[in-house]
């Protein structure tokens, strides 16, 4: 799309969209929202960028080999976080880190949940982007 207004507006809004998505991912355990919703926002930011600036431009920002890795390792991160519990001599996915868990409203209060959310968010964002790219490619 060659429209000047659209390109400017997307260029201006994109950082804020991404920031908001990351905020939602990070604060999933203290407020409504979470890794899935936040990851969607981040991914939709990239999708909006590619619809306005063209698929080729979008693919330079998120190349395929990067999305393959983030998709797979985002999920692996979940299992690795689960293994933290086992290394501490507790059950799988036990939520024990060195920080205080359970102070309402604090970012660290979720313990491992915040960290798991980061992995899930990365995975959801890259999956949305991959889905968009594959569908657009198949059409061409």
């Amino acid at each position: 799309m060659k429209d000047f207004v659209l390109r400017r507006v997307v260029a201006l809004l994109l950082p804020f969209i991404q920031m908001f998505g990351i905020y939602v991912i990070m604060h999933g355990h203290t407020s409504p929202g979470g890794a899935f919703a936040g990851g969607m926002v981040v991914g939709l930011g990239v999708i909006g960028f590619s619809t306005v600036f063209g698929i080729e431009q979008g693919k330079t920002k998120m190349p395929e080999h990067v999305t393959t890795i983030t998709e797979s390792y985002g999920t692996l991160w979940y299992i690795l976080m689960g293994l933290v519990g086992i290394f501490k001599g507790l059950p799988f996915l036990a939520n024990k880190l060195a920080v205080d868990v359970g102070v309402p409203g604090e970012l660290t209060s979720g313990g491992l949940i915040g960290l798991i959310g980061v992995g899930v968010g990365i995975r959801v964002a890259s999956t949305m982007v991959t889905l968009f790219f594959t569908m657009m490619e198949e059409e061409a």
Binding site: G34, F36, L131, T134, M135, E138, E139
Partner: peptide
């Protein structure tokens, strides 16, 4: 929320099959 995630993935997969 989990159910919605599942339904989104089913929808995406079905759309890809329809395109094919």
């Amino acid at each position: 929320l989990t159910g919605i995630v599942v339904s989104v993935s089913v929808t995406a997969f079905a759309l890809a099959l329809i395109v094919r």
